[in-house]
C-alpha cells in the first residue's frame, strides 16, 4: 500500500491565521501530489502564501483544514525523510559552528558512528564542490557558498524529499544559475524528490518536471503545468528552445492571471 502512495500528497489544505473579523484567509484549498523522484516547482504571485504552504508541507506549521501526507503517512512535524533548505542561509547555518559541524548537527540524532558520519560530510561537501571548506566558518564564505553548505547539510541528512524555500532568491544571477544547475545535478545523482518554492518563473520552468501555479490569496492551485523539456537541461540551449519560451509564457500568464489576449491589451495601454 505504501508503495503505491505518492511521495507527498497535499489534500484539501487550507490555512487561516487568527479568527473573527481579523482572520487572514491565507490558503483556501490546495490539492496536489508529488511522485517519487519528481522535481516540482511551486510558483505564485508575490504574497500568495507560498511560505505558508511550504511551512505546512514541512510540518513546521499545522494546517487549519486538510492534511499533508508523506508516503501515505499523515505528518504532524517534519518527517524523518525530509530536509529543508531555507532561503535565509546566513541565519539557517549556525555561525558558531564550522561547516563540518553544521553538517554534522542534524546527524547527531542518527548515531551513525564516526566513520559513517565523516563519510557523509565528506561526500556531501564534494557534491556541492566545497571539499576544502569543512574547517571554515559559514561567515567566512560567500553567499552562494553558504547556500551550498546548507544544501550539503540537507544532502548528508539523506532525505527522500528535499524542500527548498526560495533558496536562491538572495543570490546574484550568475551564482543563481550555477546553483540551479547544481541542484539539477544533485537531484539526478541522489534521486531525491524536490519541492522547490520560487517566485521566479524562468527558474521554475527551467528546473521542474511540473510547475504548480498558485492564485493570489486566498490561495488555490490555478494550474499544474507539465514541463516536458528535454533533460539534461542547459542554461543556454534549454532556454533557447521555442518550447521553453512557450511554457514560460504560459506559466507567466497563469501566475499573473492574464488571459491570452490580456497581455497584448496590457502592452497596448503601456505604450
Amino acid at each position: 500500500m505504501t508503495d503505491e502512495a505518492p511521495m507527498l500528497e497535499v489534500r484539501g489544505l487550507g490555512k487561516t491565521y487568527g479568527d473573527g473579523p481579523q482572520a487572514v484567509h491565507a490558503i483556501d484549498e490546495i490539492n496536489f501530489t508529488v511522485a517519487r523522484s519528481e522535481f516540482v516547482c511551486v510558483v505564485g504571485p508575490s504574497g500568495c502564501g507560498k511560505t505558508t504552504l511550504l511551512r505546512c508541507l514541512a510540518g513546521l506549521m499545522s494546517a487549519s483544514t486538510g492534511q499533508v501526507s508523506i508516503e501515505g503517512r499523515r505528518l504532524d512535524r517534519t518527517p524523518e525523510e525530509m530536509a529543508i533548505v531555507f532561503q535565509d542561509y546566513s541565519r539557517s547555518l549556525f555561525p558558531w559552528m564550522s561547516v563540518e559541524q553544521n553538517i554534522a548537527f542534524p546527524l547527531r540524532r542518527k548515531r551513525l558512528g564516526r566513520a559513517k558520519q565523516q563519510q557523509l560530510i565528506k561526500d556531501s561537501l564534494e557534491a556541492v564542490n566545497l571539499a576544502d571548506a569543512g574547517r571554515r566558518y559559514p561567515w567566512q564564505l560567500s553567499g552562494g557558498m553558504q547556500q551550498r553548505v546548507a544544501i550539503a547539510r540537507a544532502l548528508a541528512y539523506e532525505p527522500q524529499v528535499l524542500l527548498m524555500d526560495e533558496p536562491f532568491a538572495a543570490l546574484d544571477a550568475q551564482t543563481r544559475a550555477d546553483l540551479e544547475d547544481l541542484t539539477l545535478k544533485l537531484r539526478h545523482e541522489y534521486g531525491v524528490t524536490v519541492v522547490f518554492v520560487t517566485h521566479d518563473i524562468d527558474e521554475a520552468v527551467y528546473l521542474a518536471d511540473r510547475v504548480i501555479a498558485l492564485t493570489p490569496r486566498p490561495t488555490r492551485v490555478r494550474e499544474v503545468i507539465d514541463i516536458d523539456l528535454p533533460r539534461p537541461r542547459n542554461q543556454l540551449t534549454t532556454k533557447e528552445l521555442p518550447d521553453f519560451a512557450r511554457l514560460r509564457g504560459h506559466v507567466y500568464r497563469q501566475v499573473r492571471q492574464l488571459d491570452d489576449g490580456a497581455d497584448q491589451r496590457e502592452a497596448a495601454t503601456a505604450s
Partner: peptide
C-alpha cells in the same frame, strides 16, 4: 530561523 532549522532536522 536557526531554531526552525533545528526543529526541521528533528534535533
Amino acid at each position: 530561523v536557526a531554531l526552525e532549522t533545528a526543529r526541521s532536522f528533528r534535533a
